[in-house]
Design a protein around this nucleic acid. Sequence first.
DNA 1: TCTGTTTTTCCATTATTTGAGAAAAAATCC
DNA 2: GGATTTTTTCTCAAATAATGGAAAAACAGA
Lengths: 182, 182
Amino acid sequence: MAKLNERLADRLKQLRLERGLPLQELADLSGVSRSTLSRIENGDVSPTADTLSALSAAYHMTISQLLAPVEVPFQPLVRHGEQSEWQDPENGFARRVVSPPSGGLSAEVIRCTLEPYQIIAYAGPSRPGHEHHLVMLEGALTVTLGDEMHPLQAGDCLRYQLYGPSRFQTGVDPATYLMVLV
Amino acid sequence: MAKLNERLADRLKQLRLERGLPLQELADLSGVSRSTLSRIENGDVSPTADTLSALSAAYHMTISQLLAPVEVPFQPLVRHGEQSEWQDPENGFARRVVSPPSGGLSAEVIRCTLEPYQIIAYAGPSRPGHEHHLVMLEGALTVTLGDEMHPLQAGDCLRYQLYGPSRFQTGVDPATYLMVLV
DNA sequence: TCTGTTTTTCCATTATTTGAGAAAAAATCC
DNA sequence: GGATTTTTTCTCAAATAATGGAAAAACAGA
C-alpha cells in the first residue's frame, strides 16, 4: 500500500515536468500549496480525494486518468478461493469475480448464476458503450437489449455494446454464464 | 470540490449495500476501521489515496473504476480561453486541450502544433489500444506507427489504435492537427 | 412490546495531511 | 567563481483524517 504513494509521486512529478511547470505555478493552477505538492511528489504523504480532484483538474484530466497508470499491477493467477462473490438474496442472483479488473488489464470476467423464474433489469449501464461478451455455460437465459430479445442456450455467446436498458430473464431453468466486460 | 466527497460517499455506500456487507465486515476486508468507513460514507471526510486503494481492493475494483461514476460531470462548452495549453520549448511542440476529458465522456480532443523540422518520438502509449483520430488542419506531417509511414497533408485523417512506438515528424512546413483520443 | 443482537453513529485520542513562510539547493547569469 | 534568481525542501502550527471504544439506533425473534 505504501507503494501506491511512490508510484503516484512519480506519475505526478512526470506530469508536471512534462509541462515544464514549477511547483509554484501548479500550486496556483490547482489551489494546492507548494509544500504539499512537494511532499506528494516525494511520496511521503498520501493525498486526499479532494487534493487528487484538484490536481486532476489542473492537468485537465479525470481522476481516473490520473490514477490509471498508477494502479496496482495485476496478478496473473486468481485462484477460486480468492475470487470474491456476492449474492442478492432477493432474486438469487450470484456474481463471482473470476478475473477481477486490474491496472494494465482492460477486461474483466464475471461468472453469474441466476435462479429460475427471475428477472434482472438495469435502467442503463454505469459506463455506456462497454463491450460485453456473454458466454452461456448452463441452462437458458433471455437477454433483452433495448427492444431486441435474445433467447440463449448453453454454448451460445452474445456480444454487444450497452447504451440503454437491459434485462436478464430466466424461465424453468436456472442460468449460469460468463460475462466478459471490456 | 466539496461535492466530490458526497458523491463518493453515495457511491461507496451503494457498493457496500449492493453486496449486503455491514461496516464491520468491510472493515475486516479492507483494513479500514468501521468508524472511518462510516464517516467516509457520510461524506464528512475525504479519504486518502491509500484508503481509496484499500477500499477498491476490498471491492475487487481498480481505483479508477471506483471513482469513474463519481468524477465531475463534463461541461458542454469549453471556450477558447478556458482551454489549457502547454508547450515544449525544446522542440516547439504545442498542445491545446480543446475538449478536456471528463467524467461521462469517453473521448477527448487535443489541438497540436509542431514546428518545421521536428521529430517527436514516443516509445509506447500510456494506455495501449487507445483509438486515435488524427485530423490534419494545416501543413504537412509524417506519422510513423510501428514501421508504417504515413505522409499527411491538410484535410487528411489518420485513424489507428496504438500499441507500439510512434513518431511525428515535420519537414519544411509546420503542422497543425487535431487529435481525437477515445 | 420486550429482549438480545446487530449495525451505525458519536466521541476522545492519535496520527497524517495541509498551508505559509524560512532555509536549503539548484540553476542562471555575468 | 561568485552573486542573483529560481526552484525545491524543510519546519512548525493548524486543520483534517484515522482509530478504538462507548452510546445510540435499527432489527429480529419471541
